[in-house]
Amino acid sequence: MINSLKGLWVTLVSTVNGLRQPVTQQYPQTGTFWKRVDTPTPVKDRFMGFPGLTWDGKIDEPYCTGCMVCIRNCPTLCMSATMKDNPAHEEGHSHRRKIVDSFEINLNRCILCGICVEVCNFDAIAMTHEHELSNFARNAARMDLPALLELGQDFQDKTGWIPPNERAKKAKEDEIENGDGVDNPEPAPENAELEQA
């Protein structure tokens, strides 16, 4: 009896608070009926949405070389790729000898685990912040190379993405500048050590 009344009091307080400051928010638009504003869902920096392929703006080609490490490491086998000789390398513009020819990810199968990003040696794939890909067609979530690059480009533009390798290099340099890492100036030989499955 007393606790039920207490419960009624709790809900009353909650109502007052709810009128002032509701917890939920509207999606995908906020605002009143008369004026609606598109509001994207706020996501955290590390949010892992669908994977996209990144674009090397300096050389104007994708980072991806089609080495297929991500494909071998994907737990759900949702990707496939082919590689080709890089024409830009022959012309001398690029340091990449090989470049991705075709790439396909079935985002319906993707479980957003982020393993592909972790194993990539070329910063070529990133978990974008895109998470709204509902479609009417069954196979519409199969993304080919241009679509994936577009996803990645969008992500790069929006978040100012820095390639992880560059970030690591910069961190190392900062460390050296600060005088902490003078004793071990050799670069990390991680990639050389990487065992192939």
Partner: peptide, 17 residues
Amino acid sequence: VLGRLQRRLGPTRTGPM
């Protein structure tokens, strides 16, 4: 009322409020 009681918004999309 139930929405506000649970600090939700209740129906919002169809017509004003």
